[in-house]
């Protein structure tokens, strides 16, 4: 359950965030898969960079809307991708398993959050 903000009218923005989260998680999954299956350095790194941009946006707003845990997971994944791309392994055409596992954790958390919200709304 998310922590409620005191700001009145925040529910509308929270609902929009969750709508966008569905689209973002789909895009994130596509980029993660493309990076994992990529064969060239550019293909892998470009897809990781796209995934990183999506995570960065989620991490920047989730906390303000009361989804602190999701924001933290997004930020940790963002930092992991940054560390990979900026490090020596960022020059090798290989996508680390840890990054894919991290993204998988994020996607599971995201799906659970959306499912939890839908259940609350229909209750």
């Amino acid at each position: 359950m998310h922590k409620k903000l005191e700001l009145p009218g925040i529910e509308r923005i929270r609902a929009r965030f969750l709508d966008m989260l569905e689209q973002r998680q789909r895009a994130l999954a596509e980029h993660a898969l493309a990076a994992w299956e990529g064969s060239t350095l550019q293909e892998i790194n470009d897809n990781l960079a796209e995934a990183r941009t999506i995570l960065h946006q989620i991490a920047g707003t989730a906390g303000s809307l009361g989804f602190d845990d999701l924001g933290t997971i997004a930020r940790n994944n963002e930092l992991a991708i940054d560390a990979h791309l900026d490090g020596p392994n960022g020059k090798i055409a290989s996508c680390p398993t840890e990054i894919i596992f991290g993204l998988d954790d994020f996607l599971k958390s995201s799906e659970a959050l959306i499912a939890g919200q839908s259940a609350m709304e229909s209750a």
Binding site: L7, I13, R16, F17, M20, Q57, T61
Partner: peptide
């Protein structure tokens, strides 16, 4: 900001509370 959620949050906060 390129994130519409950030812009909505800012609008909501700044116009609603200041």
């Amino acid at each position: 900001d390129d994130d519409p959620i950030i812009l909505e949050l800012l609008s909501h906060f700044i116009e609603g509370m200041t």
